[in-house]
Structures are given as structure tokens and as C-alpha cells.
Amino acid sequence: MEPRVSCTISEGIADVRLDRPDKLNALDPPMFTALAETGLRLRDDHSVRAVVLSGAGRAFCAGLDFGSFRAMDGQGHEPASYEGDGPARALGQKAAYVWTELPVPVIAAVHGVAFGGGLQIALGADIRLVAPDARLSVMEIRWGLVPDMTGTQLLPGLVGRDVAKELTFTGRIVEGEEAVRIGLATRAEADPHAAAMALAAEIAGKSPHAIRRAKQLLELGGRVGLGEGFAAEQRAIRELIGSPNQVEAVRANLDGRAPEFRDTTPEDH
């Protein structure tokens, strides 16, 4: 069987691609497994500073493989479980949510279609760059289903609860420019992958310790009380001030040169 996901790492940037172009990167069990395993490997790779997540060929991801869908055959369907840490306990959920769990920024580059589960995978990214003519849809309702890959929990935080309901209840298709207007995407780009790689390079040039702490803090926003969030800010700033990478950031700025940061280590987490 051909690999379902490809991953190359260069200069701190992991370029991850759903790699089943003949099927528009449709999701089948091996694809779910490959996504979860790739994300977990990157989570533990302390040389990685940013991740770009995209689809090979003509689309980001067309959603559930129709053959897998037909295999449900009206007899009920028990999602594959995932044995591991974190809140995602089903394999499909882990395939999408693992990108949120990565300690570094993840940028989804979306072209073609991102339907159903494909859209939910993109929701796991921190930033979504979409082609103007990309087509996105919470399509599960068309098949008598509900989003079950963390989408019901992540979507309202992006577009608001009422818009999330409208998109989920109708399954309508949203094109790139509208996706940006409603908060489903960050911005539109003629070449999402090139733009995502450029943004990843910019992020990779910043202090990796500060970037990781920033993602941790922003993930807490709206999910914990203000007291806990403010306390986390203070712990982070105490850890960063005077640290080698923070000192290097100051010196590089004053010297007018590119900084030379050291990567994180397991002891930093």
C-alpha cells in the first residue's frame, strides 16, 4: 500500500501532505492512522518549529472515502478507538485534533475541496490559508451524519455558534472568500501552499521557546478562567525573560542581524 501521508522536514519546517491524489485525498482507515502517527512523531520532534499541512494533487481532502462509507451498510458503525493521551479518544478525532496538540504552529494550506472530515482536519490547524476558489463544507448532514472528528467542538470557536449551526444543519458549500469573511479561514491566497511555507519560514525564524509558549497560552483563551489564564501568562514570561533564546532575540535586534536560536529540548516541556 502506498503511504497515505508524506512528510519532509527542512530548516525546522515540516511539510506534511495528504498523499492520495487519485482519490482527492479521501479518508480511509490507513489515512486516519497515517495522519495521527505523523502528527505524534512531529509532536515529539524538538527540531520542528512550524508545520504546513496540505493535500497533494487537486484537493486538500474530499472527506470520507465513499467505499468506507458504503461499508457501514446500515448495520451501524463503531469508530476505531485511539489508545493514547489527550481528549481525542477515537482514531478519526485524533487524526484531526493531533494538529492542535502539536506544540508548534500548524498552517493548513487548502485548495480544491475540504469536505466533511477534510474540513475537520483543517480545523485542527492554527491558521488556514485557502485558495479563493476553494470549496469547504460541513458535509456530514448530507449523509445523515454529524461531524465526529472534533468539528462540533472546534467550529463554534471560529465562526460563532449560530454560523456553526447553519453550516452543520445545511451542509452548504462555502468558497474561499466567504470562508475568510465568516472566520472559517484566516486569509485567501492564490497559492496557499507557497504562502503557508513562507509564513512557516517566518515563524521558524522566531524564538522557538516563545512561539511554543504563545501557542500554549492562546489555546487556553476562552477555555479556562481568567485567573488561570493570567497565571499561565506570568509563568511563561518568567521562564522566557533572561533565557538564552530571549537574550539572543534582544542582541540580534540591537545588532541588526538574523538571530541564531537553539531548538527546544525535552527538558523544556
Rank of each mutant, 00 (worst) to 15 (best):
R235I: 13
A204E: 06
P208I: 07
D85E: 15
I203F: 09
A36P: 06
V110I: 15
L217F: 10
N245Q: 10
T170A: 12
R142F: 04
H77K: 01
P29V: 07
H46R: 06
A231E: 15
L24A: 13
D268M: 06
A88S: 11
E166P: 00
F169D: 15
A90F: 13
N253Y: 11
V113M: 12
Y82S: 02
T33W: 08
L40P: 00
A125R: 01
A210G: 07
M31F: 05
A59I: 00
R235V: 13
R43V: 00
G92V: 12
A164R: 05
K23N: 10
D28I: 01
G151D: 03
V98I: 15
G112T: 07
R41K: 14
T38W: 05
Q75H: 12
Q93S: 11
F261S: 02
E178T: 12
A109Y: 02
S207P: 11
G221K: 11
E11Y: 03
V138T: 05
D133S: 14
G205H: 09
D268Y: 02
A62H: 02
G227A: 13
A198D: 14
A50H: 06
E233D: 03
A80Q: 14
D148P: 01
P259I: 12
H111R: 15
D133E: 15
P147C: 05
L136F: 08
T170I: 07
G205P: 07
